[in-house]
Nucleic acid binder design. Structure first.
Length: 204
DNA sequence: AGTGGGATCTGT
DNA sequence: CAGATCCCACTA
């Protein structure tokens, strides 16, 4: 909408996942369809996975599934979990380093047509969770390994100046804590979310 | 070739 | 807290 939105470029993501994950909060994830439909959401919760991390899918080395995590930054890493939900990650760091940021929750800018009749309370939490956001944005394994960038089915936009100002003035605060749903690496504080946000995956 | 577990979510 | 449901990595 605003004239000076900047699309996130690959080099900005070519840093350790633990640096990228908090920086992605407030950025916009955009889903574009061939017919022109667009779904946009602000990232409100992320988790970092990377080297030396037993919970990281790349921990045991390069496998058919994890190979995209070793690829260049800004590649999408989508996988199926529990037989029914997809999770969306953005690959980070330098090529050869197996790492990514899991996008765990979005605050949608607008509710897609198909959910228009849903109660407002539910609409707020439509993308509150990694599986839910993939369902809403129709992200599945066909998008695995694709570049995330301009003209692609998925791309990212940097924080608006207003959002950055709110961070700088502490009107919005970023909370750092441990990750969810894993059994290994449970003590690593590699999850970040926006405080005072009702669209995060778990409410206090 | 078989198997056990998994970065989830919903309803009871 | 059980159930849905399937891919993947590991074992043999």
């Amino acid at each position: 909408m605003s004239a000076n939105t900047q699309i996130v470029e690959s080099f900005w993501l070519a840093r350790p996942s633990t640096s990228v994950a908090p920086d992605l909060l407030g950025c916009t994830l955009v889903r574009q369809f061939p017919d022109g439909e667009v779904i946009r959401g602000t990232i409100v919760e992320t988790e970092a996975y990377g080297p030396g991390d037993p919970a990281c899918h790349a921990y045991t080395g390069l496998t058919p599934r994890s190979k995209v995590m070793f690829g260049p930054a800004s590649t999408s890493y989508v996988y199926l979990i529990y037989g029914m939900y997809h999770c969306f990650n953005v690959v980070t760091d330098l090529e050869g380093v197996g790492s990514a940021v899991l996008v765990r929750a979005l605050q949608l800018e607008a509710v897609p047509e198909e959910f228009a009749g849903m109660p407002a309370v539910k609409q707020v939490r439509l993308a509150a969770g990694p599986g839910k956001l993939c369902k809403v944005m129709k992200i599945d394994k066909t998008l695995n390994g694709l570049p995330v960038g301009a003209g692609q089915p998925l791309y990212l936009e940097h924080r608006t100046e207003e959002f950055q100002g709110a961070i700088d003035s502490c009107a919005i605060n970023i909370v750092q804590t441990t990750r969810i749903g894993i059994t290994k690496g449970i003590d690593l504080p590699w999850r970040w979310y926006l405080g005072n946000c009702s669209a995060v995956s778990k409410l206090l």
